[in-house]
Computed example of a mutant assay.
Amino acid sequence: MGVLGWHEDEHYMPEDGILVVQDVRGGSWYEDLTANDAHPVGTLGRSGRGWLYAAGGDGPCVVRLQLRDDRPADDDQWSDVFEVPYLSPSGAVGLTGLTTGPGGEHLRLGEPGMYRIRAAHRPLPPARELPEDEDDLQPTDLWQLDFWPDQDPADPPRWLRRHRSPVREADPGWGSVLGYQEMEVAGVVEWGGSAAGMTVADIDSWGADHHRGPNWLDQTFRVSHPREGWPTPAEIARQVRVPEPRVRRDLLPLYVALQILTFDGTRYVAIDDKPAAKDVLRLPADVVTWLDGAQAVKQFTGYAADLVSVVFWGGGEQTIASLAERTSASEDDVRRTLRYAEDRKLLEVEWHAPDGVSLTICPAGRPR
């Protein structure tokens, strides 16, 4: 299991959060990705004829490309590990960007043909402080992409380890119902403070430290146009019997009434498991429908693309149990995501008793 070749980029910047590897010539990424409406990356990564996309994140990464003579040994140092087939039309690959096309030759694989990639990821220790110049940002993540020769037809993709569930937690919808500026103070408490919460003075100091201006909590809101059919902050406040918020400070008792924050008389603390907005407020039916649809997109889009990738590489005949094992997911997540993929016309699903499924990729439903 020796390393035959390697390339390392110590400061690779993912474009739009996507790490891209392409063959230096002859790849079919555009044809593969535009043939259906699935997300191009999925939860961790997808591959095709001469391309690999991975969830590179927001910051710079260290990326290692390695050619091996066989599958690498299992290694528990990684947070996420998945394997995908890779059909190389040129026998040479390189790191590149999302919009720049094929780049230079960084790793010579050998003869054109089928290879397999094990992509392994883990976060790096955070920097103690942010630099003034973005070019000096320290890498936030390490990716190691191991290539080795494989047979054709290839075994479909397999997810070996995940640091979180492929189906995201349900979004309670408060950001959509209240809006950005009305949720900003709650976000400060949740993400800008400690687990012990923040006092009003802490929140006001955060505003001063982050250039919100003096007396941030007593500033009035920017004028915004009401969204047709959606409740205004005044209407929401009336439903939970608190005063209409006119300045940011007034939002704090509203958050408590909506069960977004708690207050012990001194400190505000974010609630981890927030109730859904539709369960707290009386919302119009059209708003509830919109919230349900938006929640489904956030929860299932990535994992549905993983399932499309399995089918793309020949894995159309499955059981619920085999898909759960292959994708490191629960059987319940598989069933719910297959129904989402059916509804969004990503996959045609033929259900067989007791738990078999035949899956076919739906063609793209919108012009490209």
Rank of each mutant, 00 (worst) to 15 (best):
V308W: 02
L338A: 07
D141S: 15
D141E: 12
L52H: 01
G17I: 12
D23C: 15
P226N: 08
L109V: 00
G59E: 09
E235Q: 14
Y303P: 01
W216F: 15
V269Q: 15
I260C: 03
L52W: 02
D136S: 11
R248L: 11
A186D: 05
Q259T: 10
D355I: 04
W174L: 03
G50I: 07
L19I: 02
L258N: 02
I203A: 02
E342I: 07
Y115D: 05
L87R: 08
D32E: 09
A35I: 01
V288E: 05
G213M: 10
R128L: 13
W6N: 05
V297W: 04
W313C: 09
E348Q: 14
S309L: 02
V297I: 13
T99K: 13
L281G: 09
P89E: 06
T266Y: 07
H121R: 15
L19C: 07
G91N: 06
E83R: 08
I203L: 05
R168V: 03
L67K: 03
Q318V: 04
V200I: 14
G179W: 07
Q22W: 01
E169R: 14
A186N: 06
L346N: 02
T327W: 04
E169W: 10
V240T: 05
D70I: 00
P156S: 11
S322Y: 04
E184S: 09
R122P: 03
A285D: 11
D37H: 07
P233A: 08
P112K: 06
P85H: 08
R25V: 13
G104F: 08
L251A: 02
R344L: 00
S90C: 10
K274W: 06
E169M: 11
R161L: 11
Q77T: 14
V247F: 05
A195M: 09
D37R: 05
S309M: 02
W351H: 14
R267S: 05
L254Y: 01
S165A: 15
V256M: 05
P284A: 06
A285I: 10
L67T: 00
V269G: 05
R336C: 04
D272P: 06
E350I: 12
E8V: 15
E331K: 13
F221H: 05
P253A: 08
G26Y: 03
D76M: 09
A294T: 12
A277M: 08
A201R: 13
G207N: 03
L283G: 00
R158A: 04
E132S: 15
M183I: 09
G94E: 08
W206H: 13
A73C: 09
L281W: 03
G56A: 13
Q144M: 11
V3P: 01
P233W: 03
M13E: 14
V84E: 01
A195E: 09
P275E: 06
D37K: 04
Y30M: 14
A186W: 02
G56P: 05
P166N: 04
P166Q: 05
D75Q: 09
G293C: 00
H106E: 06
R344S: 04
P231N: 08
L258W: 04
Y268M: 08
C362I: 01
P284T: 09
F147E: 00
E235H: 08
T360V: 13
F147C: 06
L281E: 04
E31A: 15
L4R: 12
E228Q: 12
I320T: 15
Y115E: 09
A285Q: 14
Y180Q: 11
D70R: 12
L346C: 07
